[in-house]
């Protein structure tokens, strides 16, 4: 991979505006070695377009704020190096979709926070002594790596194309539920929520979410599919139902 030299000129084509008055605006910048897309956007903000709206916080891929679509691909801008994209052409930067647009590169993601509130929180047994082993939680820790960048929500066609926000929670919240359901100390049952409210069966396993996850969480294989199985076991297996009834186990 060739390194971009400081001073090289790059054009960024950024979606600007709000409501119906949207347009792509070209900005020319002199890049520095090692720049990521967010560096360019912040440089444009500081020198050419002081009212350019963009969310960012950590600039180190830990907070999940600077999600956008760079040349049509859902990315964290702080993790997208200019070295890795074709800078001979204008670099197109748009806000994430699946959510209402606010202004420039900012979308209204509040819906996600409403979904989260509906998930039964972590519920340990009253007398649990919290002795558990690393092997018990390797999988749970994978889910808890999620930085809530919502790129999976952005790319999921159930939300993006079918706009099923009222009956589908989206990959982010299947990851969240999986982290709770598979926690060795948790006792709650979220299968009805998964089936009735979160619409887990609307997912047809195209794995788009997994492909865009900047934390490399295996969303489909490790979270969604096991959750579907869990719902099916619970709903349709009378023997398991009886065992649970007798033993009181989850």
């Amino acid at each position: 991979m060739s390194r971009m030299q400081t001073g090289q000129k790059v054009t960024f084509r950024i979606l600007r505006g709000e409501g119906d008055s949207l347009k792509e605006v070209d900005y020319h910048v002199e890049a520095e070695t090692g720049w990521v897309v967010l560096d360019a956007v912040l440089n444009i903000q500081a020198t050419q377009a002081p009212d350019l709206s963009v969310r960012w916080n950590c600039k180190a891929a830990k907070c999940g704020s600077c999600s956008a679509e760079v040349n049509g691909k859902p990315r964290l801008m702080c993790k997208t190096r200019l070295d890795d994209i074709d800078t001979s052409q204008p670099v197109v930067v748009h806000p994430i979709k699946s959510f209402p647009h606010v202004k420039d590169l900012v979308a209204d993601v509040k819906w996600n926070y409403e979904v989260n509130k509906r998930i039964t929180p972590f519920t340990p047994a009253k007398d649990a002594d919290f002795t558990y082993y690393q092997e018990d939680v390797d999988r749970v820790q994978e889910f808890r790596k999620c930085i809530e960048c919502f790129l999976c929500q952005n790319v999921c066609h159930i939300l993006r194309n079918h706009e099923a926000h009222s009956r589908f929670a989206g990959p982010r919240f299947f990851v969240r539920v999986a982290g709770l359901e598979m926690h060795p100390m948790d006792t709650a049952d979220r299968t009805q929520f998964l089936d009735q409210e979160a619409g887990v069966f609307l997912c047809n396993i195209t794995k788009c979410c997994t492909h865009v996850c900047p934390e490399d969480i295996h969303i489909t294989d490790n979270a969604i599919i096991p959750l579907k199985e869990r719902v099916i076991d619970r709903k349709y297996d009378p023997l398991q139902w009886l065992v649970r009834k007798v033993t009181g186990k989850k």
């Binding site: 709000e18 903000q45 002081p50 709206s53 963009v54 202004k103």
Partner: peptide, 11 residues
């Protein structure tokens, strides 16, 4: 500062 009061980082 330029622009409106809507999500205006310069302001």
């Amino acid at each position: 500062v330029e622009g409106s009061r809507m999500f205006n980082p310069g302001w």
